[in-house]
């Protein structure tokens, strides 16, 4: 019996495509944000609230993933920005090849921000790099404060946690501080914003994060290679 050492990622093919996408995003100054949450936590609604306040000439596009339907794309198309649905036909996450394929007829140089709404799932999307500059995890106040401890991977890998549906706090037993503390146990220093898409309270902190992220992204690129 002889042992052959293999030093490679299990998902090396996905990672290769993702790295290529990341390079293309960087070349074209496109900030790509990958939104991840359980089904129904408010990914599409957050995007609706975001698109609705952007100027009409904003250079923004959305890829939205779902296992079956095209509903989310229909909701998001109302704002006049390019939107494409990715139906995975059963697969519980998006992978880099799906992103690459659905970007084929879009010109990246025409974009500043690309939002990806992942398939509703806190586990599987965590393993698949899509070439994004940042993952954002959304946790709604109806889901329980211990989600970060039960699904540590995605909270660890996301730069920002959006605590959503805060308008429902009077009606559900949910301790915001505890949820935030749990997220920061898993991911020390994690950025967190509290948002209600119903009352729109907190939306500005999300938009500010996005703006800061985009500036940091462009700056990072501007820095000369040592």
């Amino acid at each position: 019996m002889s042992r052959v050492v293999l030093q490679q990622k299990v998902l090396s093919e996905n990672d290769r495509i993702a790295a290529h996408l990341r390079e293309r995003f960087q070349q074209n100054n496109v900030l790509c944000v990958n939104l991840i949450s359980s089904p129904g936590s408010g990914k599409t609604t957050l995007l609706e609230r975001t698109l609705e306040v952007l100027p009409h000439d904003a250079r923004v596009a959305v890829l939205t993933g779902d296992i079956q339907t095209e509903n989310d794309a229909a909701r998001l198309k109302r704002f006049g920005f390019p939107v494409k649905q990715i139906t995975t036909g059963g697969t519980c996450h998006l992978d880099a090849r799906m992103i690459e394929r659905h970007l084929e007829d879009w010109k990246l140089e025409d974009l500043d921000i690309l939002f990806i709404e992942n398939v509703g799932n806190l586990v599987c999307p965590s393993s698949y790099d899509l070439g994004e500059a940042a993952k954002v995890v959304i946790l709604s106040v109806t889901e329980g404060e211990d989600k970060p401890l039960r699904y540590p991977s995605i909270f660890f890998k996301s730069e920002l946690m959006v605590l959503s549906k805060t308008d429902l706090l009077p009606y559900v037993p949910f301790n915001l501080e505890e949820a935030e503390e749990n997220a920061r146990r898993v991911h020390p220093g994690m950025e967190i914003v509290r948002v209600s898409c119903q009352t729109r309270i907190g939306l500005s902190s999300w938009l500010k994060w996005l703006d800061g992220k985009r500036n940091a992204y462009l700056q990072l690129k501007a820095e000369p290679v040592a």
């Binding site: 019996m1 002889s2 042992r3 052959v4 293999l6 490679q8 299990v10």
Partner: peptide
């Protein structure tokens, strides 16, 4: 964090 998110192939054992 320096490790803990591995998803890697380490080795294959083959027999002649």
């Amino acid at each position: 964090c320096v490790s803990g998110d591995e998803l890697e192939l380490a080795y294959v054992e083959v027999e002649e």
